[in-house]
């Protein structure tokens, strides 16, 4: 006997994500989900981003890691409110799921924020699959990872709304072709805005900060 089902396997996560999105929009907070492989520079980029946006735009951070509070401590130094999620209590998940974001967001005073940035777990695969109720997704790729990564992880670059190509200060020491890296990102996702930045020297941040301000004020 065949029983017809026709249901999405991740429907529970999608329902929670939609609830989160509603909760955020009622409080007029724009939510950005920031993803990359481990070490691409999410935390460093975020620290600079927060410094450039505050106090004019009030930013809060949720940061996910399998273990440790290191990133929360680094980001907390900017003065922005930070909530850390450690997924090892929830089975060491390789991504943040919508219910974890719900729990973390309820620890924050969203009425006093304009922008909530979620630093996802370092991983170019799994976080791409899980909607957390964000309004936009950003992917960070560092030039040290090689130009071919967008082609190897197409889902991540396809779902992203904006891409940051980080660590351009290291280009003189590498054989990497920056234009090819941009081309590959835009082959996977035609028309996606790509900003070339260095979180170390702060080069290239104007375009990115402008894009983000446009989201928050738009």
């Amino acid at each position: 006997m065949e029983i017809n089902i026709q249901r999405k396997v991740l429907e529970a996560n999608e329902t929670q994500a939609d609830r989160n999105r509603k909760y955020f929009s009622e409080r007029k907070v724009f939510v950005l989900n920031m993803m990359s492989s481990p070490g691409s520079g999410k935390t460093e980029t975020l620290s600079i981003t927060i410094k450039r946006l505050m106090p004019h735009i009030r930013v809060g951070i949720i940061v996910g890691d399998i273990c440790t509070r290191n990133d929360a401590d680094r980001l907390g130094a900017t003065g922005a409110p930070v909530v850390q999620i450690n997924t090892d209590q929830f089975g060491g998940d390789c991504h943040l799921a919508a219910h974890l974001i719900d729990r973390a967001a309820r620890e924050m005073d969203l009425d006093s924020l304009d922008l909530l940035i979620v630093e996802n777990i370092g991983n170019l695969v799994c976080p791409a699959e899980f909607d957390i109720g964000e309004n936009a997704k950003a992917v960070v790729l560092s030039v040290t990872e090689g130009e071919d990564k967008p082609l190897k992880y197409p889902l991540m670059f396809q779902v992203a709304d904006v891409a940051l190509l980080n660590k351009i200060d290291l280009l003189p020491y590498l054989d990497v072709d920056l234009n090819l890296a941009v081309d590959n990102i835009q082959k996977v996702h035609p028309k996606i805005p790509v900003f070339k930045i260095s979180a170390k020297t702060q080069e290239g941040f104007e375009g990115w900060i402008g894009w983000l301000k446009g989201c928050v004020n738009g």
Binding site: E2, Q6, R7, K191, I192
Partner: peptide, 17 residues
């Protein structure tokens, strides 16, 4: 720019007992 029409599915269509 492109819109994805299919290819992201993750669905159970049925079970057979």
């Amino acid at each position: 720019a492109v819109d994805i029409l299919s290819g992201r599915e993750l669905e159970i269509s049925s079970i057979e007992l």
